[in-house]
Structures are given as C-alpha cells and as structure tokens.
C-alpha cells in the first residue's frame, strides 16, 4: 500500500470539536479535539463506544453540521455549509420504497441535475458490474437486506465521490451477508481508488476492511489510539483472517482499549 508515500490527504480533521446546544443546560459535547487524516485510497476505520459521537463526526464531515471548534478539510477545501462533496452511507439502506432499484440508484444524480439518459446509463453500468443485473425494475420491498444495502452503496457510488463515509453499514445484516458485503465493499472501494471512513463497532470488521483504525474514547470522543493494519489484500479473506496472528493481536489490543474506556 502506498500509505507511506507523502501525498496530500483527501480528508483532514484539525482539532475538530462539536458541542450541541452550547451554553445551555442541554449542552452535549459529542467530540473534542479530534485530528486525523485520510490518505488517497486509504480506508480508515473508527471504532468507539456507542453514543460517543461518531455519527455526529460524520455529519460534520458531510457538511450537515458545523463543528463548534476546529475544522475539517475535504480535498483541501474547508467543509462549509454545502453538502454533496462526500458519499455518505448510513446504517439503514434508506431506499425510497416507491422507486425501483434503478430509480433509487440515480437519486443523487437527479438531485445534481445530471441528464436522465446519462444518469440511467451510469446507474445501469453500476448495477450490472455489481451483480444486480435483472433487478433494475424491482422495488426495494422485493429485495433481501443484503441486496438493499448493495443498492444503497451503488446510489453512493453513482455520484463518484472521492471519499465515502460508511456509518455502521452492515450492522443490520445477518452474519453471513455481512461478511460477503465486507469483502465486496472493500474490493469495490479499492478497485475504484476511493478513500473511505468506516464507523463500526465490530472490531473484526474494522480489521478486515481498514488500513488504519482509530479507537475513540467515550463521550466526548477523543482519539484514544491509532493502529495500522499490516495485512495485504490477500490476507483479508473474512474466514482465514481470523487465524492470522496480526489480526488476533490487533483484535485483543483494540478490545482492551475499548473495554477499559467503556467500563470507566
């Protein structure tokens, strides 16, 4: 991996902090003094106790919320009040039930004003390359959970973002579908030269998919530790990876870091 070569990061958080309702009795400090970078083609995983502020951090990166301190840069530009500069995929697939698969995949392109013919051609290509050919006209209610999540991922890819945010994208799926989607998503991200941040509370998922893992503390979240995952693409088979000594060492380390912080 070329994580070592000095390239400008595609994403950078500089001392970012977020307080909801600041200065009121309802003030909630979600995260504090968070700094990290994401290199081109790097996948970063964020693990941390639930409720620590990970989704809030994503909302700030996506430009849906403004951090109350520090700043976030995507592609060298400071994230302001505009959105649409990163791909954002949430835990729920959020497919529109009245639209077909194809119409769901083109949603972002439609919002952006891409001509219908061009956006449908692009969506059909995506659908075909990722194994959902024949389902273009199906309604989401006719699909399994795994297929729905795949369609949601294609909707994200259709806008061709450089950075993709994945907020616990597989947590609602059953175990086997989750493993399949982990390798599938990971290889699509690599193949398309995307950068990604994956929020998960599944330590195994983080190690399987990411080049680097950030462990966050409980709320207000701060960066507790950063780990490099020294596994090649070929080591990341979700079954065999569990026998890899590096995987086990990494797992134990993160487990103890999370456990210590959750218990305290």
């Amino acid at each position: 991996m070329d994580a070592m070569t000095p390239t400008a990061p595609v994403l950078e958080a500089r001392n970012a902090g977020m307080v909801f309702n600041p200065g009121t009795p309802d003030a909630v400090e979600a995260f504090r003094d968070v700094s990290f970078t994401v290199a081109p083609r790097e996948t970063l995983a964020i693990v941390g106790p639930s409720g620590c502020g990970k989704s809030t951090l994503f909302n700030c990166i996506a430009g849906l919320l403004r951090p109350t301190s520090g700043s976030i840069f995507v592609g060298g530009n400071r994230v302001g009040d505009t959105a649409g500069h990163v791909g954002y995929m949430l835990q729920k697939d959020l497919l529109l039930p009245w639209r077909t698969v194809l119409e769901n995949v083109v949603l972002g392109l439609e919002v952006r004003g891409t001509p219908r013919r061009a956006s449908e051609a692009k969506a059909k290509d995506l659908i075909r390359s990722y194994g959902l050919a024949g389902f273009e006209a199906a309604k989401p209610s006719q699909l399994s959970g795994g297929m729905r999540q795949r369609v949601a991922f294609m909707r994200t890819l259709a806008l061709d973002p450089d950075v993709i945010l994945l907020d616990e994208p597989f947590s609602a799926l059953d175990f086997q579908t989750r493993l399949l989607l982990q390798i599938e998503t990971m290889s699509i991200i690599r193949e398309q030269n995307k950068s990604a941040i994956l929020v998960t509370h599944d330590i195994g998922e983080a190690i399987t998919m990411a080049d680097r893992i950030i462990v966050m503390t409980h709320r207000p979240a701060r960066v507790l530790a950063v780990h490099d995952v020294e596994l090649g693409q070929e080591d990341r088979d979700p079954v065999n990876i569990r026998e890899n000594p590096h995987y086990n060492a990494c797992f134990k380390q993160i487990w103890s870091e999370l456990g210590a912080k959750v218990a305290s």
């Binding site: 194994g131 399994s144 579908t177 390798i183 599938e184 699509i188």
Partner: peptide, 24 residues
C-alpha cells in the same frame, strides 16, 4: 469485477445456510 456474486459465494464455506443469506 469486484466480488461479483459468483465468486463471493465461493469464498465462505458453501452450505445450505448460504442461500438464506439472501444477497448474492
């Protein structure tokens, strides 16, 4: 091609439960 349905089904141990996974 990134993990099209036919390959991805081959990597985990095949079994009847796999069909229940829906997905590919």
């Amino acid at each position: 091609m990134a993990a099209p349905p036919n390959n991805s089904a081959a990597s985990p141990p095949p079994g009847p439960a796999l069909a229940g996974a829906g997905g590919p």
